[in-house]
Structure formats: structure tokens, C-alpha cells
Design a protein around this nucleic acid. Structure first.
Lengths: 198, 198
DNA sequence: ATTATCTATAGATCTATAGATAATGC
DNA sequence: ATTATCTATAGATCTATAGATAATGC
């Protein structure tokens, strides 16, 4: 039951957000009593926090691996970007969910930052070291880790943020969603890479 | 009063979204009675719709002008992109607001599409004609209006979506928000342009 | 007279808790 | 005995409406 509640809560919170999801809705989805949520999770807010923090971790998990490998810097950037796209692709509702919940309740930014700092703290120095080396060699233009990350994340979450709006356009132009996504995955990485060239 | 209600509603809806804003909140903000909202706007939903549709129009308004001028195609793209950034910059909460309200209530997609089609219907053929000409000349690579738009909007709304998250990073690195925004405005247009080169 | 504003309230939620009952593990 | 589940409900919203009063325009 505890697990079933978590899963139903995840589905509903991701779909409608905290405010529009009532504990009664979740209980109905699970097929149990509303008061059972409080038995296991103490309050709606705490149940929500578990989902929220889990999703933050999931979304950031993609950033870690590529930095450890031994390939050239620009290849790392490509792997990083495509890996990030894949994670977002498997969790298409998560970016908008996190952004909205942070904007409407800045308290949540705290736990978000804790998690993100834990992960970026590891990667950032490694990445910046390599980045500086390349910039000195002149193989890439003057930039920062911050800028690269911003470009990458903006491009990669774009398609998923616009998904409901795009659906219409795609049908109209007879484009298959999967084809478009595959193309965008490559295109985003390509854009990120050319944006780095001098 | 009617105007005051609209303004307060706009502020609160943009800040917290439909679900977290009560008509009582709006009335308190205005300093009037809660039932007055129903007198002027019939229901919370209808009041919301006025704001929502207005914001859709505002956000799309930036797309129109540059297409009419007589400058080279790539310059048009730059002007389009920087103009779009400026509009978003003046309405930093609007993108997330619209995206969230559409996702949580797909009904709203209908009025959104009507407005967007009205505006894109004008621009799209003009843009595509010039685009095709350039592609044939070989001055830009094979692409579509759809892809260019997606890249542009993704990049331009990024900074504003991440704003609360970034604030911390900026303070830490002693970067002024305005400087960062100015840099991003130029950088986004630059990225969009290099992404189009063969 | 008409329009604008207020008071009061019905009816529908929604969350959390108290306390009862059922199921499980020793 | 302990843990899991349910019933019932208090107390806090929240939206929309009915009907009273105040302000305005002719």
C-alpha cells in the first residue's frame, strides 16, 4: 500500500501539480482510504516532498557519468547533452513540474539546491578544468560551465515543455513524434557544439 | 474597480497560478468584496481566461514586426530572436504561467491555438519562402521554420524559467542579473544564427 | 432607474485527527 | 501486541448566488 500510494501520488502530482491534486484523489486512485496517506506520510506536504526530491535526483542523475570517461572534451559535451536529453525524454513531465513547484513555493528551492549542489559540486571543477584547457588551446571560444549548462538544458527541455502545443503541428505535418524527438536530440547536441566553436 | 480587479488578478495568477489563487485573495488585494469579481466577470474561470488570452497575445506579439522589414534573411532572424527575448524579458513569468496552465487544463490549449494560428498564419508563409530561397542558395543548412522557432523559444525562455534557481549562482559569482541577461540575449541570437550555417 | 458594492450564506471541497476495527507476527 | 486500515468528523477553505444597500446618471 505504501508503495502504491507513492506511485499514484507521483502520477497525479506530475500531471496536475501539488495544488490541483487532493489527497482524496490519490486515495481514490490507489483504492484505499484517504486517511491512510496521513498514516504513512504524515501530511500531503511530506508525501509531496518525497516525490519532488526523487524527481530532482532523477533529472540530475544524467550529468554525472560522462565526466568520468576518457574521451575528448567536445565528445564529452555531446555525450552529456544526449544523455541529458534521454533522461528528460524518459521523464517528460518532470521539468515543468519542478519549475512550477519551485516558482509557486520558493521553500522548495532549498531542498532543490541541496541536491543540485551535491551533484554539481562533483562535476563542476572537473568540467571547468577541461574547459579552461580547451579555451587556452583556442579550440573553443570563451565561455563558462554555467552558460553551456543553460544552453543545453534550455534546448533539451524545450520540446517537452511545448509537447501539448506541438502535437497539433506534428499531426498537421504528418510527422511522427518519435522521429521528431530523435532528430531534436541530435540537433540539440549539434547546436551546443557549434555554439562552442571559436 | 473592474480595472483594479484585472490588474490584481493578473499579478496573482501569474505569481501563483490559477489553482493557488482564490477569488478571496484577489478581492483582498484590490480592497473590495469577493462577490464583486462575480459581478464583473461572472466566474473565476472567465476572469482567468481574460488574463490568459491577453498573455498569449503579448507573448506572440514580438513575432510580427521583423518579417515586414527589408533586411537580409539572417538579420531578420537575429532581430526576431532579440525581439522575442525582449518581450519575454518584460514578461518573465508569462512563459511558465502559460505552459503550466495549458498542461494542467488542456481545454485552454484551444484558445491558445486559435490565437497562435492567427499570428503564425501570417508570418509562417513569408518566413518559409525566404527560408527556402536561402537554403537553395546554400547560405543556410537544411531546416524548417518549426525547428528555428523551437530553438529560439527554448533558448530565450530558459533564463527566465531558471531564474529563481540561478539567483543563487549569480550572487555567488558576483554577477549582476542585468549583465547576465544582456549577455544571454546576444548569445542566444548568436547560437541561433550559427546553428543555421551550413 | 440603473449600476456598483456589500452582507450573508449555501454547498462543495479538502486536510488532518481521533478513535474503532481488522490483520499480522510473535 | 503491533501494525494496517477504516469510519466519522472538525475546522478551514473556497466559489457562486440571493438579496440588501449605496452611488450615479438622467
Amino acid at each position: 500500500m505504501e508503495q502504491a500510494i507513492l506511485e499514484a501520488a507521483e502520477r497525479l502530482f506530475l500531471e496536475r501539480g501539488f495544488a490541483l491534486t487532493s489527497t482524496t484523489d490519490i486515495a481514490r486512485e490507489v483504492g484505499c482510504n484517504q486517511s491512510l496517506l496521513n498514516y504513512y506520510f504524515r501530511s500531503k506536504e511530506r508525501l509531496f516532498q518525497m516525490i519532488f526530491e526523487d524527481k530532482v535526483r532523477v533529472l540530475l542523475s544524467s550529468l554525472k557519468e560522462p565526466m568520468d570517461s576518457n574521451i575528448p572534451f567536445l565528445d564529452k559535451v555531446r555525450v552529456l547533452c544526449e544523455g541529458h536529453f534521454d533522461i528528460v525524454s524518459r521523464n517528460p513531465r518532470v521539468p515543468l513540474f519542478l519549475l512550477h513547484e519551485i516558482h509557486t513555493n520558493l521553500q522548495r528551492l532549498e531542498s532543490f539546491k541541496e541536491i543540485i549542489n551535491g551533484i554539481l559540486g562533483d562535476i563542476s571543477p572537473l568540467f571547468e578544468k577541461e574547459l579552461n584547457r580547451e579555451m587556452q588551446k583556442g579550440t573553443i571560444r570563451e565561455t563558462t560551465f554555467f552558460d553551456i549548462l543553460m544552453t543545453m538544458v534550455s534546448l533539451n527541455i524545450g520540446v517537452f515543455l511545448f509537447h501539448p502545443i506541438l502535437e497539433d503541428v506534428l499531426v498537421q505535418h504528418q510527422i511522427h513524434v518519435e522521429n521528431m524527438l530523435r532528430a531534436r536530440r541530435k540537433e540539440n547536441a549539434r547546436i551546443l557544439l557549434v555554439s562552442l566553436l571559436p
